[in-house]
Nucleic acid binder design. Structure first.
Length: 739
DNA sequence: GTTAGGG
DNA sequence: CCCTAAC
């Protein structure tokens, strides 16, 4: 087996870290923050390439820039090339399928498990953490004791070691309980002293991680990887999984391997890996359901050699996920918030088939989500996420995922979630639910299979003269637009929406076979997309609606074909707009409609769960179409300006002048979240252009000539007087009042 | 983060 | 509507 000589650490986690001084650790975390996401994506991509093969090549990490500008630059490059969630899903699904097909032997039978490791951190304040740490260690051990069978030998070994170690270390450093199995002493980077020492050593661990990144090979995977490759059941993903940033919250399911079913329940220990040569699973406190942990069926690749075999396969660097978990978490949260607030996932046309068929080629689909410019994300939205993350602490899978993980983890989470929903039937050893109360009975698997996606209420208007091809395109774009922001999954049982993410399937009544026929799923637009901020109270957990300081204007992109023609048929009919022209009231669908649990929402896609069926079909669903222009999915939905909006714009510009788009936005379009000041500027530009061309040349909803005249007048005026009048601009407040 | 301008 | 440069 592979991961023999590994050192396993069972350092008990500690509680959330209070503010810590900025130190080398901090710096290291920054590095991790910066690099991890990309490393993850690269890894996934690589895995995709290597799908089906054991030759996993570690991605080459970029040079870590020192300057802020350099960071931004590189980061952007990274972001611009990232894979979209669905790509990941495709990858995961594809790999999963392949693996399942190729391996009849469950991982659990083979033995080793990855599990475990624990990391963390030595705390700078051992005294504070002493109790919790001990307790955790105890829990873990107890949990471990439930194991039985050969495959648990390793666990037992760990348990044994932990006990010994505990007794040895407790007095001096209870906070860092380490389990050590054999490992080579020559490990230059992760010297034992660094990882197994008492509190205060964490910094080293972190530095080590940072060093790895700095070396550009955080996940290098030497020939000897830990995986139990011999059983052939391990997936590439099971090998080097970056987890570093995950050592945060025990509830987060995102930290598990992309396609390990076991990961779905978020109860198992996290794997920590840096170099793929070794994996150090994490054990952290707050892992909710330890009782189920013992299952550790497949995928628990324990890097420990139970036989004490130290043939080290080159696994000399046990990674330690470091920890200063809270800091890392904070960083992750920040990034996530930023990500969620300013970007949305792009639906990629990547064909899952490729994955299923294990075609190695990436086909150049390496793009990911588009950077949504921050200016386009409303402040409120950002704020919302912020709040959300706070309240999400008690939430379920999704909440945790959204709020407590890093970007990369988010992706993992998403894929896992989807996986859980769509692929859970495949012998997933663990439940597909999020956390569940401890001490529950072992999970029984619930088999679900989704037959097809139904797309109701997809209204499309298209000229008679349009070609069939354009019709197809239009439909495609309409669908893509809906999918563009990523999807949320809603679960309906007997027509009733199950809102509590924390419920187990059993608790929700989904575990009973006879009820599965009445189980439905909905695909809902991701609130992060465009103005479609929220779907009402649909899922307060997800967006933290409940914690939103104020009701946000609910805007929703109508499911009607958006951006289909120049006529802009997708836009809602113009609404009267007294003072706030665009306050998103042009939405066609009221929040109530959207959130009504009893009926299929107009914009959600109904799914029907049906008993066993071809998994592959499911996997392909979100990715099936492969538009020629993948960008279409990421592009914001086109929302032509209504006459009322134009009027408001003209009025504002007349007062404020050109060149003050932010003020224009604030005064006239403050509540129109879908109109950024750039939009307004652009619109003005087109208005000026429109006003200058002949009416015959104009397209779209006709703008009254009167308005166009005003446009020209104002434009001419401000072109002349802009410079000098801007010197003494009246206060915005007054202007707004005037307006 | 804004603004301006090209695409 | 997107993207980027410039500030």
């Amino acid at each position: 087996m592979v991961g023999s000589d590994n050192r396993i650490q069972a350092v008990t986690p500690r509680r959330a870290l209070p503010d810590e001084p900025i130190t080398a650790t901090h710096r290291a975390l920054e590095v991790a923050e910066f690099l991890l996401p990309m490393s993850l994506w690269d890894m996934v991509l690589q895995k995709r390439v290597d799908c089906g093969s054991s030759g996993y090549q570690a991605p080459v990490m970029p040079h870590f820039p020192r300057s802020a500008k350099g960071k931004r630059s590189v980061r952007k490059k990274v972001e611009d090339s990232q894979m979209c969630a669905f790509d990941l899903l495709a990858t995961v699904a594809g790999n999963l399928l392949s693996e399942r097909e190729n391996s009849s032997t469950p991982c659990s039978d083979t033995g080793t498990s990855n599990n475990v490791a624990v990391k963390d951190t030595a705390t700078e304040d051992p005294l504070d953490k002493e109790k919790p740490c001990k307790l955790e260690a105890f829990d873990w051990l107890r949990c471990t004791e439930d194991l039985s069978g050969p495959e648990n030998d390793l666990k037992m070994q760990i348990k044994h070691d932990m006990k010994e170690n505990t007794s040895k270390t407790t007095s001096s450093d209870p906070a860092s309980l380490c389990v050590k199995s054999d490992m080579s002493e020559e490990d230059p980077i992760s010297g034992e002293s660094k990882f197994f020492g008492a509190g205060g050593k964490i910094g080293h661990a972190v530095d080590t991680v940072a060093e790895r990144y700095a070396m550009g090979r955080p996940y290098s995977s030497p020939a000897g990887s830990l995986e139990c490759k011999e059983d052939g059941s391990k997936t590439p993903q099971q090998a080097g999984r970056p987890v570093a940033g995950n050592a945060i919250d025990g509830n987060a399911p995102h930290m598990y391997s992309l396609n390990d079913d076991m990961d779905l329940d978020g109860k198992t220990p996290t794997l920590v890996s840096s170099d793929s040569n070794f994996e150090v699973p994490l054990y952290r406190k707050n892992i909710p359901c330890i009782s189920s942990f013992p299952k550790q069926d497949e995928c628990m690749d324990l890097p420990v050699d139970k036989d004490g075999d130290d043939n080290s396969s080159g696994c000399t660097h046990p990674t330690v996920v470091t920890n200063k978990a809270s800091r890392l978490q904070r960083i992750g949260d920040r990034r996530i918030r930023k990500l969620l607030a300013s970007k949305f996932w792009k639906v990629s046309p990547t064909m899952l088939q490729d994955d299923v068929e294990q075609k190695p080629a990436l086909r150049g689909k390496r793009m990911c989500y588009t950077r949504q410019r921050t200016q386009r994300s409303s402040f409120k939205r950002r704020k919302l996420f912020y709040n959300c993350s706070v309240s999400a602490s008690d939430g379920g899978i999704y909440n945790e995922g959204v709020s407590n993980i890093c970007e990369k983890d988010r992706i993992k989470l998403e894929t896992n979630d989807l996986h859980a929903t769509w692929f859970g039937a495949n012998g997933a050893p663990s439940s597909t639910t999020g956390q569940k109360p401890c001490c529950e009975l072992p999970d029984y698997r619930v088999k679900l299979s989704i037959k097809s996606f139904k797309v109701p209420e997809l209204v499309i208007e298209i000229p008679e003269t349009a070609t069939v091809g354009s019709l197809k395109r239009t439909v495609s774009e309409a669908v893509t637009a809906i999918l563009g922001g990523g999807l949320r999954i809603g679960v309906l049982l007997q027509g009733k929406k199950i809102r509590h993410d924390n419920k187990t399937l059993r608790q929700a009544g989904i575990s009973q076979g006879d009820k599965l026929d009445n189980l439905g799923f909905t695909l809902e637009p991701n609130p992060g997309q465009a103005p479609a901020l929220l779907t009402g109270s649909e899922d307060p957990h997800f967006l933290g609606l409940g914690c939103a300081p104020e009701p946000l204007p609910l805007a929703r992109i109508p499911p009607t074909a958006p951006a289909t023609t120049d006529q802009g048929v997708s836009d809602a009919s113009p609404q009267p707009m007294p003072t706030c022209p665009e306050s998103d009231h042009d939405s066609v669908y009221s929040p109530a409609d959207a959130s009504s649990p009893e009926k299929t929402t107009a914009n959600s896609l109904a799914l029907v769960a049906v008993p066993p069926m071809n998994i592959e079909a499911l996997a392909m669903v979100p990715l099936r179409s492969k538009p020629k222009r993948p960008e279409a999915a990421q592009r914001r939905v086109r929302r032509p300006f209504s006459v009322a909006e134009v009027e408001a714009l003209v009025q504002a510009v007349e007062k404020l002048g050109t060149g003050r788009w932010r003020d224009v936005k604030l005064c006239a379009f403050e509540n129109a979240n879908h109109r950024t000041y750039v939009d307004l500027k652009d619109k003005w530009k087109t208005l000026v252009h429109t006003a200058r061309i002949s009416p015959q040349q104009r397209r779209g909803e006709p703008v009254p000539q009167e308005l166009l005249d005003r446009v020209l007048t104002a434009h001419a005026y401000w072109s002349q007087h802009q410079a000098k009048l801007q010197l003494k601009p009246p206060p915005s407040a007054e202007i707004c009042q005037l307006l």
